[in-house]
């Protein structure tokens, strides 16, 4: 199994600079009329009085990159998109930081609203990514998508 698929993973949190630069790069693509962006942020859930302070992400990277590729292909088939970008964190992301960045662009707004929800739900359901929720006292539990 070689690596024919694009790597969506980035070590650590996705910075607001990185997101801003991604938006700026699209200014030359003047057939685009609408962007839509999803940012997943690590939430300080409380469990038994203890707050989550970070999530440590790991993944079955080869399979995940293949799944992200499949999701991308299915989304382009379903919706009229000009381009799409997906980035997911690996390793530790603190509460309040961004762990998922999905960016879809189209000539028209209606497509990006539908496409973005489709992509995010598919990622949650199909991508083999695992999250260890770390509490303030260094104990942990494993996150499960609901």
């Amino acid at each position: 199994m070689s690596e024919p698929y694009k790597n969506v993973f980035k070590e650590g949190a996705i910075s607001s600079d990185f997101i801003a630069n991604s938006i700026a790069k699209h200014q030359s693509k003047t057939d685009i009329g609408a962007h839509n962006i999803f940012l997943g942020q690590v939430r300080a859930d409380k469990v038994d009085g203890k707050a989550v302070c970070a999530i440590e992400y790991s993944a079955y990277e080869e399979m995940a990159n293949k799944k992200f590729h499949d999701i991308r292909e299915a989304t382009f088939d379903k919706f009229n998109l000009t381009c799409m970008h997906i980035y997911h964190s690996l390793g530790e992301v603190k509460t309040g930081e961004i762990c998922l960045f999905v960016f879809v662009s189209s000539p028209r707004r209606k497509e990006v609203f539908k496409a973005l929800e489709y992509v995010v739900e598919a990622i949650k359901a199909d991508a083999p990514v695992f999250g260890k929720e770390i509490f303030e006292d260094a104990s942990h539990q494993w996150k499960v998508n609901s």
Partner: peptide
């Protein structure tokens, strides 16, 4: 070939 045992997914 390439067998993996996967817990519930938690991406995003």
């Amino acid at each position: 070939q390439e067998i993996a045992v996967l817990p519930p997914f938690a991406g995003g």
